[in-house]
Amino acid sequence: MVNAKDVSDIMKALAESGFEDAEIRLDELYIRVSSQPLDGAGRADARDGSPAPGRAGPDRGRPAAPPSRSVPDPGGPDRLEPVRSPTLGTFYRSPSPGAPPFVNVGDRVEAGQALGIVEVMKLFNTIESEVAGTVAEIHVPDATLVEHDQPLMTLRVD
C-alpha cells in the first residue's frame, strides 16, 4: 500500500530528475505527478480520501470547482470526455471488494460499459460510459466520497 511518504518521495525524485511529469502504474495503482499545473480535468480533488477537514490547506472549505468542459481541439482525434458522478456518494472502482476494477487506465471501453459504482446509503448506481474510447485518466481512488458532478475519470473518445 502506498502512503503519503511514498508520494512525497516520488515527488522529490521527480523534482530532482529534471522531468516534468511521471506516471506510475503498479497493478491497480495509478499515480500521476507533475510539476506543471494539470489541465482542468486532472485537477479533480482527491482530498476526500481522509475525512480530516481540520488539516487541509486554506482552500479546504471550497468544493472542487467543476472543471471547464472545454478541451483542446474538440472533435479532433484526441477528444477528452470527463465522466462525472451523477450524485454524491462513495465511488467504487470494482463490483465487489477484492474483485478486479471495472477499468484501468489504458483500457478500451464501449458505450454502455460499466466504469464504476457510486453508492448512496447502500444503493448502488452503476456508472456507464456514454462513449466508446480509452480510459485516459482515473481521478478518484477506490472507496472515496465523491460530490455531485465531480469528475471520476477522463476518457479519450475514439
Partner: peptide
Amino acid sequence: ARLADRALCLG
C-alpha cells in the same frame, strides 16, 4: 460553503 471547514455538493 465558504465558512464551513468542508463543503460537499449533494446534487
